[in-house]
């Protein structure tokens, strides 16, 4: 049976879709069968970031309503054999998702895939709660700034209350993925520091993705950053995060630690 991961944040624009694509491609490169599922009905983007927007024929809503079979809606990635996308419908809204339909789809996907990664829409409404409902674990995407941290805190509360796992009295595994981290700005105090975020959210960290133009470049060419430029700093951070998701223990490096060490040395010299 596959593992269901929800990538969620509460706040929009923090990097849920980018992270879903990057983690999906990273896990698929380990030769595991991965499907990334777009839950953002009406505002879908995952197809763009995956470079599959021209190949969408059927979507999740078609499957729920019985207009298409699940395998017809799944799009195989052209670069990675083991990576699939289940797109959202762009012409509908979140009300087109039914709890029974989502439950059935997730149940079917679990039979065929090792990882089912659900890209949650922003907000705490129907789309977001349905995306998290069947998850085994959650990746909470957060930017190092106060509004994102507070929204993530709210989402963590919902993960502990509104998911099937929580309702069965089990513990939902939650991981923090800190994205758009800018070491120089954090150093200057323009951004929350990693410790501050961890102190507020108190869930384990699975990765820090540095702010980088590589991410934007990858999105624009329609490739997950872990495929477009696997040697770039954000890609390496996503690869490590994927390994931690798969259960490996790796030490986490805070981007810019080296630079700040050099900074300290130079600082001392100057003084």
């Amino acid at each position: 049976m596959g593992k269901v991961i929800v990538v969620t944040s509460g706040k929009g624009g923090v990097g849920k879709t980018t992270s879903t694509a990057a983690l999906g491609a990273a896990l698929a490169q380990r030769n595991e069968k991965v499907v990334v599922v777009d839950f953002d009905v009406g505002l879908r983007n995952l197809d763009l970031v995956m470079g599959a927007e021209r190949r969408v024929v059927y979507d999740m809503v078609n499957v729920i309503q019985g207009d298409a079979k699940l395998p017809q809606a799944l799009i195989r990635d052209k670069r990675l054999e083991t990576l699939f996308l289940l797109p959202a419908s762009q012409t509908r809204d979140k009300d087109a998702l039914t709890p029974e339909g989502v439950e059935w789809i997730v149940g079917e996907l679990k039979k065929y895939f090792d990882w089912i990664i659900c890209d949650s829409p922003a907000g705490i409404e129907r789309g977001a709660t349905l995306a998290m409902r069947h998850a085994d674990m959650a990746v909470v995407v957060t930017n190092p700034e106060v509004s994102s941290v507070r929204d993530s805190d709210r989402i963590i509360g919902l993960l502990d209350a509104k998911t099937l796992k929580a309702e069965r009295g089990e513990r939902m595994e939650k991981h923090l993925l800190l994205t758009r981290y800018d070491a120089t700005r954090a150093e200057r105090g323009d951004m929350l520091k990693v410790d501050d975020v961890l102190d507020i959210l108190s869930i384990p960290l699975i990765g820090i993705i540095p702010e980088s133009t590589d991410v934007l470049k990858a999105s624009n060419v329609g490739a997950p950053v872990t495929l477009a430029d696997a040697r770039s700093a954000p890609a390496l951070a996503y690869f490590d995060a994927a390994r931690r998701l798969a259960g490996e223990t790796l030490p986490i490096t805070i981007p810019g630690d080296k630079r700040s060490l050099l900074g300290k040395i130079f600082g001392r010299k100057a003084a």
């Binding site: 805190d153 709210r154 509360g157 502990d160 108190s202």
Partner: peptide, 8 residues
Amino acid sequence: NEPIRSGQ
């Protein structure tokens, strides 16, 4: 025994 999250 758990943190009280925003909105709770």
